[in-house]
């Protein structure tokens, strides 16, 4: 055990400040342990979200020494013992209190995404998909909705006015999962360009860097979506080929 300083941001939309707490840190402690210890022993009204404490639910996102991370998967031993560890709320979302922010924007965006539309099943009523068909989709479905990627993405982090026209990386992961689902028949490319604003992303990959599930957000979701959008909007050859094959761009199932 060792006494260490943790500096937690305390405040709400009206302002606040970092408050230092001295805590006995045990071997193996993660930042969340220490925050909860502060809550139990020193500040019962310290607001923080968490559930699983095992990196599976995506509740405990915060900025630790300025890095967006899950508190429950960040060990105290990562940081020098003689300096305070700073824990701050996410920047991109409005602050509710202390470490809790209002992430409702994400749930609103989720509602605008056209849901899964499967093709009819095989004659026996089942669906068959091979593992290599679903590998890509399963990577995306690992997402635990921690919204760290949404938080770090400079498009909305540094330019709040873009929140109305850019869905953000988590939602490109979701859109990619639907678009690449072997059973899905809907075509969401127009939405991806026009409402989700995939063009705002300049592929600088901060989302990939912070994703605790190691989803290759930029390489495997966003860039392939950009390419699919190019197929529809910026590739006359492709457009012509689709026309010749009798497919109308934008039509459901246009991308077989």
């Amino acid at each position: 055990m060792a006494l260490r300083t943790i500096s937690i941001y305390r405040g709400d939309s009206g302002g606040g400040r970092f408050v230092d707490f001295q805590v006995d840190v045990e071997e193996g402690n993660v930042v969340l342990d220490v925050v909860l210890k502060v809550q139990a022993e020193q500040a019962p009204d310290l607001a923080v979200r968490w559930n699983c404490k095992a990196g599976r639910c995506g509740s405990c996102s915060a900025e630790i020494n300025g890095h967006p991370r899950l508190m429950c998967m960040t060990r105290m031993s990562m940081f020098p013992a003689d300096r305070p560890v700073y824990v701050a709320p996410l920047k991109t979302f409005p602050l509710v209190k202390d470490l809790v922010t209002d992430v409702s924007l994400n749930y609103q965006i989720a509602k605008t995404i056209p849901p899964f539309q499967p093709r009819p099943p095989d004659p026996d009523g089942l669906y068959r998909m091979s593992q290599e068909d679903v590998d890509r989709v399963q990577e995306f479905r690992r997402c635990i909705e921690c919204f760290l990627c949404q938080n770090v993405c400079h498009v909305i982090r540094d330019h709040p006015e873009n929140k109305a026209r850019f869905y953000g990386p988590r939602w490109f992961v979701r859109l990619a999962e639907l678009e690449m689902h072997p059973l899905d028949t809907a075509d969401r490319r127009q939405l991806i360009r026009e409402m989700a604003g995939v063009g705002f992303c300049n592929v600088t990959k901060c989302c990939t860097e912070v994703c605790p599930e190691h989803i290759k957000i930029t390489d495997n979701a966003i860039i392939p979506l950009k390419e699919r959008v190019v197929d529809l909007y910026f590739d006359p050859l492709r457009w012509l080929a689709d026309r010749l094959k009798g497919k109308r761009p934008g039509a459901v199932g246009a991308q077989q």
């Binding site: 890095h67 920047k91 770090v152 400079h154 330019h159 992303c201 600088t204 860097e209």
Partner: peptide, 23 residues
């Protein structure tokens, strides 16, 4: 994007351009 235009210069570090339209 990161080094010349500094949008962003590094992750969780503020962008240089005040307005941003990306691509």
């Amino acid at each position: 994007g990161r080094s010349v235009f500094m949008s962003p210069p590094a992750c969780a570090v503020g962008d240089l351009p005040p307005r941003y339209y990306g691509e």
